[in-house]
Design a binder for these strands. Structure first.
Lengths: 122, 122
DNA sequence: CTGTATCCTGCCGGATACTG
DNA sequence: CAGTATCCGGCAGGATACAG
C-alpha cells in the first residue's frame, strides 16, 4: 500500500486509470496502438464517439503523457495523434485485456443466459 | 474485424469491457483477485464505493460470469464473493495494467506539469 | 451483516452551431 | 479538416431509510 495505491480514494493513479479505462479512453488508446491517426480517422475508428468527447479524451490522454499531438501547419489543417512510449506500454496491457474479453464472449453470453434464466424464474 | 470487435458500437464485448474497466468494476475485480471477500470487506477495500454501486457492480460481474456469489445460510448473514476462472484471467490482465499505471505515476505527473505549464502560459 | 428502495443532484456526454 | 462553444436531457451514482 504505497502512495499511489489505486484502491485509495485520493490517489492520482486512480484518476489516470479511469482516463485509460474509461468508455472512450480505452477505445482511443486501442485504436492509436494500431497506427497513428488523424482526428477524423479516429472518430471513424472509435464508432459512436462525438467530436466533443474525442477532443476531450485526447486532451486528457495528452496531459497524462500517453498521447502526443502533432499539428502540421498546412492547409487544410493536418493533425495527427500517436502514442508515447508510455502510452504504448499502457496500450499493450489494455489490448491484452480487450482481446481476452473479445475471445471469451461466448462464455460471457452463456453465463448471462444462465443468470437471467434463474433470476427470471423468481 | 469479427462479430465481437469492441470498436464497433453495437457489440456485446464493448459492454462487458465497460463493466470490467468501469470506475468500480476495475477496482472490485482487482480487490477480489487478492482474496475472496465479504460484502463489507469489499466495501472497505474499494475506498469510496457506496453500498448501492457495489451491489450493482457485483450483480453485473456475476451476470457476466466473472464473479460467483456464495451465501451461507447462517445468522448473521454471511456472503462472500470470489472470481471465477474467467474472472481471474481478466483480473490478471487488469492488474497488469493497474500496476503499470501505478508504477509510472511519476512520469504521468511530470507530463501533467509540463502540459499545464505550456497551456497556462497561453 | 447484506443487501434493496427511493429520492435527488451533478455532470457526462449528445446535438447543434460556429471558428480558424 | 480540426476543432471550440453552448445548451440541455438523461442517467450515473451518492445519501438515506428500511428490510430480512
Amino acid at each position: 500500500m504505497d502512495a499511489f495505491d489505486v484502491f485509495s480514494r485520493q490517489c492520482p493513479s486512480r484518476a489516470t486509470l479511469e482516463h485509460v479505462t474509461g468508455r472512450w479512453g480505452s477505445l482511443t488508446v486501442g485504436a492509436l496502438y494500431e497506427s497513428r491517426l488523424r482526428f477524423n480517422e479516429l472518430r471513424r475508428r472509435v464508432d459512436g464517439v462525438s467530436e466533443k468527447m474525442l477532443s476531450q479524451t485526447l486532451h486528457t490522454l495528452e496531459r497524462d503523457g500517453l498521447v502526443v499531438r502533432e499539428a502540421r501547419p498546412v492547409n487544410p489543417p493536418w493533425v495527427d495523434y500517436e502514442l508515447t512510449p508510455l502510452g504504448r506500454e499502457v496500450a499493450e496491457r489494455l489490448l491484452g485485456l480487450i482481446q481476452l474479453v473479445e475471445g471469451r464472449m461466448p462464455e460471457v453470453i452463456s453465463a448471462r443466459e444462465r443468470y437471467d434464466a434463474t433470476r427470471g424464474a423468481l
